[in-house]
Design a protein around this nucleic acid. Sequence first.
DNA 1: ACCTGAACACCGTTCAAGT
DNA 2: ACCTGAACACCGTTCAAGT
Lengths: 231, 231
Amino acid sequence: MTAKRSGAPSKRPRRTGVSPRVPEARSEPSLSRERIVATAVELLDAQGIDGLTMRRLADRLGSGVMSLYWHVDNKEDVFDLALDSVLEYRGPPQLVESRDWRGKVVHMLEDWRAGMLRHPWSASLLPRRALGPNILSRLELLSRTLSGAGVADADLNAAIWSLWNYVMGATITRASFGLSDEDRAAAQQRLTRLSEHYPTIERSRLLLDNDWDGAFRKGLDFLLDGLAPRQ
Amino acid sequence: MTAKRSGAPSKRPRRTGVSPRVPEARSEPSLSRERIVATAVELLDAQGIDGLTMRRLADRLGSGVMSLYWHVDNKEDVFDLALDSVLEYRGPPQLVESRDWRGKVVHMLEDWRAGMLRHPWSASLLPRRALGPNILSRLELLSRTLSGAGVADADLNAAIWSLWNYVMGATITRASFGLSDEDRAAAQQRLTRLSEHYPTIERSRLLLDNDWDGAFRKGLDFLLDGLAPRQ
DNA sequence: ACCTGAACACCGTTCAAGT
DNA sequence: ACCTGAACACCGTTCAAGT
């Protein structure tokens, strides 16, 4: 398990204030933190977590590998930056703004999940990395909504962590488990062959159930039922 | 994201029936699937997920790297085997056997979580690997208990997946997030510096809360409250 | 049936150097 | 201030070979 870095500022200068001179327009725009991160996201989307390689990243950027290290501490840093860049929250649409707390929470968490599923590598990365500003904003908003809804201060952290756990578990599972339909079919068949050992989950067709969105919503409702302030 | 293999039988012969001749006792016991898996678990416990290397594994076993490939398909196979080997469930103790369904479910899930926390690499591995026999047994037992408690067939899969999601999310987070106390303190301090942006989670000290066991239980109770069959 | 070493095509990162 | 190539110490796996 790799150690976690707490988002400390990079040793690099971080481009203070105005640049002393506008660089000439070039065919290959010069390297920058932003360009590196954006390209890393592209690469991760296309090739998955193992597909991100410093060498491949440099290739895509048309630079030498070691040039990256001027802008970025190391590969871990690239992961942290790519991750947070993908978790931005645009806020609830007008429609939802007016709804009750429950509608707001459901929207926030469905949006969070959807965002991670658009970049399936992000879900499994999130729990092991430092929390960046975007994810902190989401937690803040969730926290404020629950608190405003009347969840007691003593229950607040437990409520937030339950929702976090549920969303993370659901999304990680969906992102990595749901890749191949025929894998799941094969697993269920294996189950049928062994049905004397696993009669109940064989009968309920647990591994074939593929209404992921519906199941997510249903479980979230269970949890919110339990969370809802009494009275 | 690596493709998932559905636990298909190895191409290797799998030691059929009686061995033709008992091998001479040697100082270095000969390689075997079991020995490889056990040593892989040791290595994972000691060095974490990145610490498992075919070369290091072979070293520990006193063999050449390539000898492993006779017993095992590839590194993915080693992960699958190590994972399932760690998820065995001994069943509820007598004390719990007599309890109500809720007590049983809580025991099963706390045991599941504890087992994974004893091997912190296992939690983050589980969702992306094929489900081995031990984890299927756990799901079967959970399923049977909920069904016996009166959860409707139509809700059963959703109930199981909610619990799975919650347990996985909680355990993955705890295993990878909780490594360093001072990391979390640093994060909370950063939060305090930025308290105008994150007033609510700063006030509730979300990132400092370290009663993981209590929080797990509390969230599980929320979820079970919502799950419990009406009436 | 079981084990081996050499070789291939990769990795992330250090270092000393260029402009 | 920014970029580079060579080099180091690693990886997983194929292959042809040994016993």
